[in-house]
Simulated scan of single mutants.
Amino acid sequence: MAVAPKRSYTSWIVGDTSDAKRQPLGGVVLAGGSTDVDAAMRWFLRQSGGGDVLILRASGSDGYNEYLYRKLGEAVNSVETILLRDRASSNDSVLIRKIRQAEAIFFAGGDQANYVNFWQGTPVADAVNERIKAGAVVGGTSAGCGILGQTYFSAIEGSVTSEEALANPYDKRVDIRRDDFLKQPLLDNTLTDMHYSARNRQGRHLAFMARAATDWAIRPRGIGIDEKTAVCVTPDGNVMVFGLGNAYFLQMTRKKPEVCTQNQSLSWNRKGKAVQVVTIAGSIDGAKGFNLTSFQPTTKAKKEYWYVHSGTLARVFIRASVRTKNGRIQ
């Protein structure tokens, strides 16, 4: 009697175990952590086209299976959770096949460093990127959201507070990486950060962006998401913000930080206009008002400038504005 090979991961599945072969609708879900936002997760399931949903995680269990398959009322072929505990798991051929058959892929919360250690530069990341290119919808919450930007904080050296990152943007814990992991085009040059207001992460987010601007001479973008809040983005970049908190869309103006060096406090002032921030408040039905492709508001929105003076974050409010048909901001 043949013995099935021992798998290097744990899997739980509900629904049809055969491949659905549906056409997904694409897009991305960025969830800020804590309680999942039902409306955003329903959107995620609809974007799968009724196909196979795959949850990837490095800790925890199968809590998403029943929630996504039955409780939300959206029909999909299956929901499968796969728990990977080490980097070797990322080479499993059956696992790779499961990823390549998924119409929706969601990264659960957990230890962000594990996700980078286990999946970056492996066949898992390659397979996920293939599915993104083929139109699969992807998403993540908390740490799972933190790895979705093409520029990202690795957490390899542990977490870092806003105060620590602003005091020294080259602290070893401020480990920022770019273009070597997941490649969702909507998140090009974009750093995500979660638990935003609850954990006071605005300052470290600016420190991350300052490093990206300094190290790679790019014009970085940022998306910050509060807890119990999720940003759903269609393939053409239109945003809907679901939930109880806010989503923050950050973009550097045109000039790099004045001081961003080892063992010195960050200074990124630029006359009080270092980074422009558009805030969209979440709602039950999904608040519209921003487009990631243009990275501009599409309706009247709260706008601010954020800047840093000698390691201290400050803000300047701008009147609400809207981009008109001729492209001007009023």
Score class of each variant (00 low, 15 high):
191 L>V: 15
192 T>G: 04
193 D>V: 06
196 Y>V: 10
198 A>F: 06
199 R>I: 03
200 N>W: 05
200 N>V: 07
200 N>Y: 14
203 G>A: 06
203 G>P: 04
204 R>S: 08
205 H>D: 03
207 A>Q: 05
207 A>V: 06
209 M>W: 00
212 A>R: 00
213 A>Y: 07
215 D>M: 00
215 D>L: 05
216 W>T: 01
217 A>P: 00
219 R>W: 00
220 P>E: 02
220 P>A: 05
221 R>N: 08
221 R>Y: 00
222 G>V: 01
225 I>N: 01
226 D>F: 01
226 D>C: 01
226 D>V: 03
226 D>K: 00
227 E>K: 02
228 K>R: 02
230 A>I: 01
231 V>L: 00
232 C>D: 04
232 C>F: 03
233 V>W: 00
234 T>C: 01
236 D>V: 11
237 G>E: 06
238 N>A: 12
239 V>E: 01
239 V>A: 04
240 M>G: 09
240 M>W: 07
245 G>F: 09
245 G>R: 13
245 G>L: 07
245 G>D: 11
246 N>E: 11
247 A>D: 14
249 F>V: 10
249 F>P: 08
250 L>C: 15
250 L>N: 15
252 M>W: 02
252 M>I: 12
254 R>T: 10
255 K>A: 12
256 K>R: 14
256 K>S: 12
256 K>W: 10
256 K>G: 11
257 P>L: 03
257 P>K: 04
258 E>N: 14
259 V>C: 13
259 V>Q: 14
259 V>Y: 11
259 V>M: 13
260 C>D: 10
260 C>Q: 14
260 C>G: 10
262 Q>S: 13
262 Q>L: 11
262 Q>P: 14
263 N>G: 09
263 N>V: 00
264 Q>D: 11
265 S>I: 13
267 S>I: 03
267 S>P: 01
267 S>V: 00
271 K>W: 08
272 G>K: 02
276 Q>D: 04
278 V>P: 04
282 G>H: 07
283 S>G: 07
283 S>E: 03
285 D>W: 05
287 A>N: 15
287 A>E: 12
289 G>T: 14
291 N>Q: 09
291 N>V: 08
292 L>N: 11
293 T>V: 15
294 S>W: 10
294 S>T: 14
301 A>D: 10
301 A>E: 04
303 K>A: 10
303 K>L: 14
304 E>G: 08
305 Y>L: 14
305 Y>I: 09
306 W>Y: 06
306 W>L: 10
307 Y>I: 05
